[in-house]
Design a protein around this nucleic acid. Structure first.
Length: 183
DNA sequence: GCTAGGATTTACT
DNA sequence: GTAAATCCTAGCA
């Protein structure tokens, strides 16, 4: 099992080591194939300007889930590392409870079920009610899995510190939200 | 109090 | 390729 100590490290290390880890929520999920790191001292991070009501979970204990609403309609799931830093989960490989994901997402293409932060949360039924909950307890489950070859690149969809190579993915995975430049 | 903008996805041209 | 959907937060008056 993944322990609290796993998350009590540099978010870049945690983002890298989370690739291949199996994440399930209520039994639905699969191996993580894409993550991004966000640090306390990072202009692109919600924690950059210090704790607020919205990002309070980012300053909670390592291993806490930070769930926030993006663009007014999507939810994004993060794993809190050291206080003020977190790892954004961008994509997983649909392996467990695929039928349930299809029912929630209403799509046929399996590779699009969890390929993106908003898609992932919809497929796993993650929303604001899980903000501040521990990823080390139900309904979450994290288990070490096969570690694939990694690809590294710049983060996506941000306007500041865009050059930091803090995006990690499983090489050649068909379930990435977007292809890596080198991969 | 009001306004601008965002770690996105989808549908349409 | 471009636009729309939609809401919370920060920043400023």
């Amino acid at each position: 099992m993944i322990s609290r100590e796993f998350f009590d490290r540099d978010p870049v290390e945690v983002a890298r080591d989370l690739i291949g880890v199996e994440l399930t929520v209520g039994g639905v999920g699969g191996p993580i194939v894409e993550t991004e790191a966000y640090d306390r001292d990072d202009p692109a991070s919600h924690s950059y300007r210090g704790p607020t009501r919205r990002n309070a979970a980012m300053f909670a204990a390592p291993g806490t889930a930070y769930v926030y609403r993006s663009y007014g309609l999507h939810w994004c799931l993060n794993a809190v590392c050291r206080p003020g830093s977190a790892v954004l989960l961008r994509a997983i490989e649909p392996r467990h409870g695929v039928e349930e994901m299809v029912a929630r997402r209403g799509v046929v293409a399996e590779r699009l079920l969890c390929a993106g932060p908003g898609r992932l949360t919809e497929a796993l039924a993650v929303d604001g009610t899980l903000d501040g909950m521990s990823l080390l307890a139900e309904p979450f489950r994290l288990c070490p899995g096969i570690r694939p070859d990694l690809v590294i690149g710049p983060r996506i969809g941000i306007s500041r510190a865009t050059e930091r190579p803090w995006r990690f993915g499983a090489a050649c995975s068909p379930f990435l939200s977007r292809p890596f430049r080198a991969g």
